[in-house]
Amino acid sequence: MNREAMRRMRTPCPLALIGAEVGEGASDAGCKWGAQALRERGLAAHLHRAGRQAHWAGWVQAPGARDAAGRLRAVERFNAELAQRVLAEAQSGALPVVVGGDHSCAVGTWSAIAEHWRPQGDIGLVWVDAHLDAHTPASSPSGAPHGMPVAALLGHGTPGLTSLGGWAGKLQPDHLVILGARSFEAGELALLTSLGVRVMYMPEVAQRGFAACLAEAVAQVRRHTVAWGLSFDLDALDPADAPGTGTPVAAGIRLADAMGALRACAADPACAALEVVEYNPRHDSDGRTAQAAFDLLAAMTEPGPVADPPREAGRTCLA
Rank of each mutant, 00 (worst) to 15 (best):
A152C: 10
G244H: 07
L237K: 07
I178R: 01
P203L: 12
G229V: 07
T225Q: 03
L214W: 09
A227Y: 01
E188T: 15
H135V: 10
A258Q: 07
G143Q: 10
A215R: 15
S142G: 15
L176I: 07
L255S: 01
L161K: 11
R182H: 02
T136A: 11
F232M: 09
L132T: 05
E216A: 14
A242M: 06
Q220G: 05
G244V: 10
W228V: 00
G160M: 00
A217W: 02
M148V: 09
A138K: 13
F210K: 02
L161M: 14
G143F: 13
T245Y: 10
R254P: 09
D238C: 05
L195H: 03
F210M: 11
T162P: 07
Q172E: 13
A242T: 10
S140R: 09
P149F: 06
V197N: 03
G147S: 13
L179V: 11
M148L: 14
P173E: 02
R182L: 06
G160F: 05
H135S: 13
L234E: 08
I178E: 01
Y201Q: 15
S194M: 08
D174Q: 14
A258Y: 08
L191P: 11
P159L: 07
F210G: 03
P145N: 15
R254N: 13
G187V: 09
F232H: 06
E185M: 13
A134R: 04
A250D: 15
P248T: 03
P203Y: 06
L191F: 09
R223G: 08
L164P: 00
G155D: 03
V177C: 04
A134C: 08
L153I: 04
A240C: 15
A152S: 13
V197C: 09
A134K: 01
T193N: 15
V226N: 11
H156W: 05
T225W: 02
T225G: 05
D257S: 13
G169T: 03
E216G: 14
P248Q: 00
A215F: 08
L179D: 01
S139N: 10
L176T: 09
W228K: 00
H156R: 08
V205P: 06
A219I: 12
V221C: 04
M148I: 10
S140Q: 07
K170Y: 00
S139G: 11
F210P: 01
V249E: 11
A227V: 02
K170S: 06
P243M: 03
A258I: 10
F232K: 01
E188Q: 14
G143D: 12
E185L: 08
P248R: 04
L192D: 03
T136S: 09
A250F: 12
S231I: 01
P248G: 06
G169Y: 04
P159M: 08
G180M: 06
A236T: 12
A168D: 12
G169L: 03
G196A: 05
E185Y: 13
G169D: 05
R182W: 01
L132R: 02
Q220E: 12
F232W: 04
A134Y: 02
A227D: 03
